[in-house]
């Protein structure tokens, strides 16, 4: 393996009202990846997310108003391209993603085996147990996306992912707004980027709650499926 210092790595932490957990996440990421830059993109939080991020030594981009997770990650991608980073890694601010495993995430990119790497909760030793409704939804997405991509993707909604410069250049211009994790996979596939999954073990959330509650799961699923259909006919 080539030394990692050759590649400029940006860790993007999209955050919306995450003052409780973000400090610890930044510290852990910096400890795990001392040579990487940590960038917090604050999506118009009304709490002290920005101040906490600064105090913990992260670079900060703050949206003037809330624009959603898609636009937030995309702002990070734009920053990555502007400052010539080779790899951008997305890590959630709620402490669910294990910073120690970022190295595993970027390894396939450094070795030139993939453009996009997803940290999957369902490959290998993970002990993540979703609720029944969510489990069913996740399984259905996984099936559909796997069929479209002609490659097995077990964790389509995982936000723990790394992208290389080529994928950055593409996503910077057309990162989806509504359900970016799933939709981006479809778009990336249409552009024939090499997508890969690596197993990760995710911790329980440290703070905040999932944007998807069990009751809304079915509705969420239908909307994502529609979005995927739209992506399939979209010109990229």
């Amino acid at each position: 393996m080539q030394p990692q210092t050759e590649k400029k790595v940006l860790i993007i932490i999209p955050a919306y009202n995450e003052e409780v957990s973000i400090g610890a996440v930044i510290d852990d990421v910096r400890k795990a990846m001392p040579t990487a830059t940590v960038l917090v993109v604050d999506d118009g939080s009304s709490d002290n997310t920005s101040a906490v991020a600064r105090k913990h030594g992260a670079k900060l981009l703050a949206h003037t108003f809330n624009m959603g997770i898609g636009a937030t990650v995309q702002t990070g991608y734009k920053y990555a391209l502007l400052h010539n980073y080779d790899i951008a890694v997305q890590v959630d601010a709620d402490g669910q993603h294990p910073p120690a495993q970022i190295k595993e995430l970027i390894k396939p990119i450094i070795e030139g085996r993939a453009n996009v790497v997803i940290g999957s909760r369902f490959l290998g030793q993970g002990d993540y147990k979703p609720s029944l409704a969510r489990g069913v939804g996740i399984a259905i997405f996984s099936k559909i996306v796997s069929i479209i991509l002609r490659e097995e993707i077990t964790d389509t909604t995982s936000g723990f992912r790394a992208v290389d410069k080529e994928a950055l250049k593409f996503l910077e211009g057309c990162y989806p707004d509504d359900y970016p994790e799933v939709e981006a996979l479809v778009l990336l596939h249409k552009k024939r980027f090499a997508i890969m999954e690596v197993p990760v073990t995710m911790a329980e959330r440290q703070g905040g709650k999932s944007s998807i509650t069990t009751g809304k799961s079915a509705y969420y699923m239908i909307k994502v499926l529609l979005a995927i259909m739209v992506d399939l006919i979209k010109k990229v």
Binding site: V41, K59, L60, L61, A62, H63, T64, F65, M67, A71, Q74, T75, K78, Y79, L82, D177
Partner: peptide, 13 residues
Amino acid sequence: NKRLAQEITIIKS
């Protein structure tokens, strides 16, 4: 509007 807001965010920082 989104693109402008994103650029403003980066320029601001």
